[in-house]
Design a protein around this nucleic acid. Structure first.
Lengths: 248, 248
DNA sequence: CGGAAAGTTGATTTGACTCAACAAGTGTGG
DNA sequence: CCACACTTGTTGAGTCAAATCAACTTTCCG
């Protein structure tokens, strides 16, 4: 929201907002210096497609600020989002020439790009980099599998509740919200993008959001601003075991 | 089919059927020797659950022979398969204590298990291991994303056609089929397991298989044996761009 | 102000689910 | 050897959740 673009020194990794969570998180000063040699920043405007599926990719990158999506499209136009990229998330695959998915900015976005060849070479000799990338990829795989349960087995209402939950959780880890009353989140996606995420039509998304509002599960101000009065209620609606706990 | 269980020396990695494709694929002789110190084989019968979601996991493992599935279950019993494990596939996550999914053998299966702690320690100092695991995880992530498109956007008929395609492809890379007429595959899954894979009910799976047979897209002998007279036709039915080619 | 983009809501259709009966194959025990 | 239970798979009839088609509202922006 109030993140002015590039309110950080674009040369010094030390001041980078994703220093702690990006691929470079585990790198020491010496390794960071090497990365700085091969990195460059690029900005894109909301709505721009950064990469088209099938394109030659001569870089890999981290999202520094903003949000992007990974989508797959069938010939007849049916679309499915397969990745939601938030700050610190990694784009591109070392060891592959072409992009497998469309990458689109949903907000204005700043990427920290690494030329692919040197990055790959550096990975060979930098365990910290490979280890961190493995960790991030495993996390993404877990997220993808959670998402598969959502796509394959959840109802439209559960899908919407799950999406709000997911966004709220990611936000929480950043904003550390949750004081007393309710959590508040901004949906960073249009109804259409949500539909692509959830495997629904945008009409169904709109209807189910309205239904959740009617049933007081969520409170909406404007179109994108959502307040969650009772997180447990939302979790229940999402069909995830809200657990009772058993804090193992 | 005619793979007698353990028709390989269970001590010497050199004769292992997944030597070329497992986590250990890139390891040199010295590294292999270290792995042999911490490995042990386990066999399970078809139908057995190897691991329950939430269980403590004190090992990671490779599938040597046989097939297993990764599934997630909601409290009310809805189930979604999130992984199909074929020989050489890896189970478990270094750096995590508990299993996130149920792992079930769909055929008799032999696993090559590594005690987790020593395996994690070895990964630290063995780039070959970490590199290969990263590569395999990235492949799995790609497969998961393809799967998400299937779950979110494909029709029941397309889902079935896609599943047969996927199995045929995996088989092909092993059996090198494709002579003249048609490819032949054995479905390694029950109708119910296919339903869990595809986000359908088993009745719908049965109906759509019948429909594809009626329409001569596939030929069925018995319940599991499928012949594909025209692979391009099947690809078309699967909704994947059959391409015309443009061999880039 | 005008026009496009984003979102809501209603009416209708439809693809997949549910419920139910039945068939084929497998294994067990009398 | 056959009766029986059990698992796996098929098929039909009816229902329902989400898609489709369509009208309309709100917001945004030059």
């Amino acid at each position: 929201m109030d993140l002015a673009p590039a309110r950080f020194n674009t040369h010094d990794c030390g001041t980078c907002p994703i220093r702690e969570r990006g691929v470079c998180a585990r790198c020491d000063d010496r390794e960071l210096e090497a990365l700085e040699q091969i990195k460059y920043y690029r900005s894109y405007e909301a709505g721009q497609t950064l990469v088209w599926s099938g394109d030659q990719m001569d870089f890999v990158a981290s999202v520094v600020t903003g949000i992007a999506t990974l989508t797959q499209t069938m010939e007849d136009g049916r679309r499915q989002m397969v990745g939601l990229l938030l700050p610190s998330d990694f784009v591109g695959r070392p060891g592959r020439a072409c992009a497998a998915y469309d990458v689109t900015a949903t907000t204005d976005i700043v990427m920290c790009c690494f030329r692919k060849k040197p990055f790959e070479e550096m990975m060979e000799g930098t365990p910290h980099l490979a280890q961190r990338l493995l960790e991030m990829t495993l996390d993404e795989l877990d997220a993808a599998r959670e998402w598969m349960l959502l796509l394959g087995r959840k109802t439209a209402r559960e899908k919407i509740a799950s999406l709000i939950t997911i966004i709220a959780k990611r936000d929480a880890s950043a904003h550390a919200a949750g004081r007393g009353g309710g959590v508040t989140v901004d949906l960073p996606l249009t109804r259409e993008a949500m539909a692509d995420y959830l495997g629904l039509t945008l009409e169904t998304v709109s209807r189910q959001i309205s239904a959740l509002r009617r049933d007081k599960v969520i409170v909406i101000e404007g179109k994108r601003h959502v307040t969650i009065p009772d997180m447990d209620r939302l979790l229940e609606e999402a069909g995830d075991d809200a657990d009772g706990g058993i804090p193992a």
